[in-house]
Write a protein that binds this DNA or RNA. Sequence first.
DNA 1: CTCATGGTTAGATGATTAGCTAATTATCGA
DNA 2: TCGATAATTAGCTAATCATCTAACCATGAG
Lengths: 101, 101
Amino acid sequence: MSRVFRALSDPTRRRVLQLLRAGPMSAGDLCLHFDVSKPTMSAHFSVLREADLVHAEKVGKSILYHLKLSVLEEALLGFAQSFGLGVEPPAVASDIVETQR
Amino acid sequence: MSRVFRALSDPTRRRVLQLLRAGPMSAGDLCLHFDVSKPTMSAHFSVLREADLVHAEKVGKSILYHLKLSVLEEALLGFAQSFGLGVEPPAVASDIVETQR
DNA sequence: CTCATGGTTAGATGATTAGCTAATTATCGA
DNA sequence: TCGATAATTAGCTAATCATCTAACCATGAG
């Protein structure tokens, strides 16, 4: 939990996650969107990996980063829920299959 | 946004917010729940204030801290929403009046 | 095999963080 | 006014963070 929020506390990392919404992207391609060195980006990726917010898939020379939306969802909405915020309890069981992805 | 997530990245601060769910509490009473020095707690309160997650109200010798649930909600659910998360699909317009609070 | 490319590791630096003790400010009660 | 109480500020330390350059590993192309 701490690791997730820590990861989200940096604007660069939040933007990386937003970019990954559109689909997996290589480390290099992600770097093109930011004005910092590659090692710095690599460190950001590492933080995101440790928070389990992304998955790294090695493809040839590249590394594809995938957003783990379910982890983000569980952290954000789970915590919000613990404050009674915004989440509709999925009243009936038949709803559950629709809310689980 | 960064400040909110930064504030939430510490377990002590998250627990403070949870304690404040039940209602306003003085700095001293909050301290009783934690095994750190009062100045350390004061620093945590300061971080929470700067993230606008709590409001400090001076009452006599004490300072009452209030949880600003709406700020927490906006940050958490707003960010989640930007990922298409946690949004009950408000299919029809008549639903909107029920989801807005 | 060698080389260029994609990415991470090593190592350094300046900034920030969480924690402490001691000192300070502010307010209430006697 | 004086003393006790509530909380913050001052000042310190050890650890972590974001960033950089330079060096290093891995892989696909020739």
